[in-house]
Design a protein around this nucleic acid. Structure first.
Length: 427
RNA sequence: GGAGAGAUGGCCGAGUCGGCUGAAGGCGCUCGCCUGCUAAGCGAGUGUGGGGAGAAAUCUCCACCGAGGGUUCGAAUCCCUCUCUCUCCGCCA
């Protein structure tokens, strides 16, 4: 959420940002409500001032044994007026906050301006797509013939877009989770957290998934609870309504969680394989930083996520999302895209964003500088490190061999009980 | 699920029969003083959000004592609802 004062003073900047994001909002209505609210506020405060003064006077007069009937009667009327104005005020507050909470973040100046994903900028390309001298298969075919992935049975258990892993496939998923957590905790200095997978409405509003994107979420029927679409939601909210000590910053958290997404509006997209599932696993990096260092933190966070791909020796590229493709709460986002040989394309496997103070304002996450008065909002950042299902898919495709087996990446061997490759175990 | 206790400022903790309590006291923190260092000591300051004035330091007003509602001229204090925490019992793991 943006600060109301900021919006008031930067209407043209907001208008520009909205345009770059291919969206609009009724700024006139905002301006009108805002002005009206401040006027009524002034009236209410004047009346409350009067009431406070007189109430004190009544107390003194009573102590002195004087009659206060007239004043009490007058104050009764003042009280009524206050109540009436407060009602108007509440209505305007409601209008204003529902307006503000639907305004996306302002893109950072380094975010490229553009309409859609075609205008995203390639920042760097790392690694060479492997060459194959045999007919390569898509990961769902590899998984099927190795009997480590079974989407048909998954569909019977739950429905379309759910995963079911067996044997070495299940272990590969678990190996990746452990590898990623170890890498980020031991080498990159993140603190591991295991958060709730179900969160309340306030929490998921703070990170920006609500109120605008409720249809993308799974909601528990009869409860105001939601399945998390990403660990970003519970982990960013760890410090909601807290004032952090300056010297604990920056705070680094890494969390493994399953993620649940309704994928509303993506019918027919990526229907096969592990790419787009209602449930998938993800290791997520979350940072809380001082405002002045958040863009450096974004670079290192992105690099931390990239390290997973480098260690796994998977070819990838880094994309800077343009304004039209940027997420609601983000000011700047790098996507990591891994090479998927069967489709011959780079696919998103991580998204690393700086939200600046946008989420912190909603979640009321602040810090205090030593020797300075008052508090400041922290900046929040997060990035996948990485989406595990998509990593499995990338490994299956990039490490496939002519005989239909799949080589285990060097760094994962220890996590896979020392096996060299996954082959049909004739389970 | 049953019974009880509680929720106050960065933290701990006091608030009498409703009225100079935005809130005692302590800790922490900041600035200054002092002892050649350190520890201790002394003095002053130190909540958040919003409105208004001012170039600024600052001043002033309003709101906030878990959340929401009510009573009252006036509520941290009384009443109702909700949320959360703790203790005991039951149940399950």
């Amino acid at each position: 959420m943006l600060e109301i004062k900021f919006v008031r003073q930067n209407l043209s900047l907001i208008e520009e940002a909205l345009k770059n994001r291919n969206t609009t909002a009724d700024l006139d209505v905002f301006q009108q409500c805002d002005a009206e609210r401040r006027e009524i506020l002034a009236q209410v405060e004047a009346l409350r001032y009067r009431r406070n003064q007189v109430s004190q006077q009544i107390a003194e007069m009573k102590k002195a044994g004087k009659n206060t009937d007239d004043l009490v009667k007058e104050m009764r009327e003042v009280g009524e007026s206050i109540k009436g104005l407060e009602k108007n005020l509440a209505k305007l507050d409601e209008t204003l906050s529902s307006f503000l909470i639907r305004i996306p973040n302002i893109p950072h100046s380094s975010t490229p301006v553009g309409k859609d994903e075609k205008d995203n900028q390639v920042v760097r390309v790392v690694g060479e797509p492997p060459r194959f001298d045999f007919e390569i298969k898509a990961h769902w075919d590899i998984g099927g013939s190795l009997k480590i992935l079974d989407f048909e049975r998954a569909a019977r258990i739950a429905g379309a877009r759910f995963p079911l892993y067996f044997g070495a496939g299940a272990r590969l998923e678990r190996a990746l989770i452990n590898f990623m957590l170890d890498l980020h905790t031991i080498r990159h200095g993140y603190t591991e957290v295991l958060p709730p997978f179900i969160v309340n409405r306030g929490t998921i509003t703070n990170t920006g998934q609500l109120p605008k994107f409720e249809e993308d979420l799974f909601k528990l029927e009869g409860w105001d609870f939601f399945l998390i679409p990403t660990a970003e939601v519970p982990v960013t909210n760890i410090h909601q309504n807290e004032i952090l000590d300056e010297d604990v910053l920056p705070v680094y958290y890494v969390a493994f969680t399953p993620c649940f997404r309704s994928e509303a509006g993506s019918h027919g997209k990526d229907t096969r394989g592990l790419i787009r599932q209602h449930q998938f696993n993800k290791v997520e990096l979350v940072k809380f930083s001082r405002p002045e260092t958040s863009y450096e933190e974004l670079e290192t966070l992105t690099m931390n996520a990239e390290t997973v791909l480098r260690e796994l020796e998977l070819p990838y590229r880094v994309i800077s999302l343009c304004t039209g493709d940027l997420g609601f709460s983000a000011a700047k986002t790098y996507d990591l895209e891994v090479w998927m040989p069967a489709q011959g394309v780079y696919r998103e496997i991580s998204s690393c964003s700086n939200f600046e103070d946008f989420q912190a304002r909603r979640g009321n996450i602040r810090f205090r500088r030593k020797g300075k008065k008052g508090t400041e909002l922290v900046h929040t950042l997060n990035g996948s490190g990485l989406a595990v299902g998509r990593t499995v898919a990338a490994i299956l495709e990039n490490y496939q061999l002519a005989d239909g087996s799949v080589k285990i990446p060097e760094v994962l061997k220890a996590y896979m009980g020392g096996i060299e490759k996954i082959q049909d175990e004739n389970r």
